[in-house]
Amino acid sequence: MIRLGLPVALLVLVCDQASKYWILNILDLPALGSIALLPVLNLTMVWNHGVTFGLFKGLGGVGPWLLTGVAVAVVALLLVWMARTDRASVAIALGAIAGGAIGNVIDRIRYGAVVDFIHAHAFGWSWYVFNVADASIVCGVAVLMIDSLFERRRAG
């Protein structure tokens, strides 16, 4: 199923990097700060020096390299899993996760931080600012969780 998962990873990576290029170089969101698109959605520039939800951002200068190393190791494991699976949904989910992880690794190497810019909010609630890579990772993990639940029902 690696023939299915790798194109998904590449698609996620291209969409992630293209969106970040547009945010940084065409729109110049760092200079603008935030733009309201809808009553529930803004483009808001955030440089995430940590990982998910800004965790581990206090690692200093070694942080981006440490997080990059961990992400590369995780992607290698995901590719092994992808090569071994016989389930299309798992291969697609793993591709989404791997593509997103690689997109964020590229940011850490280029900028020392991840480019986050999608800000959803409603009724006084605000979600963390994220990017295409983050959304792909979350969706991929959700598919793996759902697939796991259904696989247990089929097996039991």
Rank of each mutant, 00 (worst) to 15 (best):
A36M: 06
A83H: 11
L10D: 05
D116T: 03
D86S: 14
R84H: 10
A18P: 10
M1W: 02
N104C: 03
F123H: 04
D107S: 03
V74Y: 12
I102K: 01
G99Y: 14
F56R: 00
V51N: 00
L37D: 12
G156T: 12
F150H: 10
G5F: 08
T68R: 03
C15A: 15
V141T: 01
T85Q: 04
V75C: 07
A96F: 09
S34W: 06
T44Y: 07
G140V: 03
V8A: 08
L29Q: 13
W125L: 15
T44N: 00
W22D: 04
H119I: 01
F53Q: 10
G99W: 08
V132H: 07
I137H: 08
L11Y: 13
Y21A: 13
I106G: 12
M45V: 00
L32N: 13
V105K: 05
S89P: 02
I137C: 04
S89R: 13
V115W: 01
P39S: 02
S136H: 05
G54M: 08
M82L: 02
W81I: 03
Y128E: 12
Q17E: 04
I2G: 12
A88W: 14
L41P: 02
G112V: 06
V12A: 12
G60Y: 07
F53G: 02
V105H: 10
I146M: 14
R154P: 05
S126W: 12
I118K: 04
V115E: 05
E151C: 01
I92E: 12
I106R: 02
